[in-house]
Simulated assay, not measured.
Amino acid sequence: MTVRHIVLVKFKPELSEEEIAPLWEELNAIEGKVDGLGAICAGRSESPEKIERGYMHGFTVDFRDWEALAAYQEHPDHRALGAKLVANAQGGIDGILVFDLEIAAQPQGA
């Protein structure tokens, strides 16, 4: 079982990609600091559907289980990054969506 933590951010329109990039660097720096934290992927939407509704940036983090996600949420580096995301999101916390999805293990050979 894996828990996929999905975060979508509607950044303030005046923020450039160059100002957003350090936030993703800070996110990636958390890798290896929380037991059970797996893959991290972050960036700007490239969706051909173009229905992001202003949520043009986001990231996913995979966790071994719910306990690992809880440890990440309490980690000081996550809390610091979260505060920066809220400060840079349009409308503060209202400019951020979080969705956590439990993913069943894939059968061998699937």
Rank of each mutant, 00 (worst) to 15 (best):
G36C: 00
G38E: 01
S45H: 09
E67D: 09
L23C: 08
H57R: 11
D77H: 09
D62G: 00
M56I: 14
M1T: 04
K50P: 09
G58Y: 09
I93T: 11
K12E: 15
P48E: 11
V86E: 09
G58D: 11
Q106M: 09
A105T: 04
K33E: 10
E46P: 12
R44D: 10
M1K: 00
L15P: 13
V98S: 07
K50F: 13
V7F: 03
D94K: 15
P48Q: 11
K84T: 12
A71Q: 02
S45T: 13
E102N: 02
C41V: 15
H5V: 06
E67H: 06
I96P: 04
E26K: 06
E49W: 07
V34L: 08
R44S: 12
F59R: 03
I40L: 03
R4Q: 08
L27M: 08
A39T: 08
V98I: 15
E26C: 01
R64Y: 05
F99Y: 15
E26P: 08
I6N: 15
A42C: 10
I93Y: 13
Q108V: 06
T60R: 06
I20F: 10
W24G: 00
Q108D: 13
P13F: 15
N28M: 13
Y55R: 09
E19K: 12
I6K: 11
I103N: 03
S47T: 13
I93H: 07
R4M: 03
T2W: 00
G95T: 10
I93C: 09
G91N: 06
P22D: 05
F99R: 03
D62Q: 00
N28K: 14
V34M: 01
P76F: 14
A42F: 01
Y55L: 12
L85V: 11
P48T: 06
D35C: 04
V34S: 05
I93G: 10
L101V: 13
F11A: 08
G36T: 00
Y55I: 06
L27W: 04
E102K: 07
L23E: 04
G82E: 04
G92P: 14
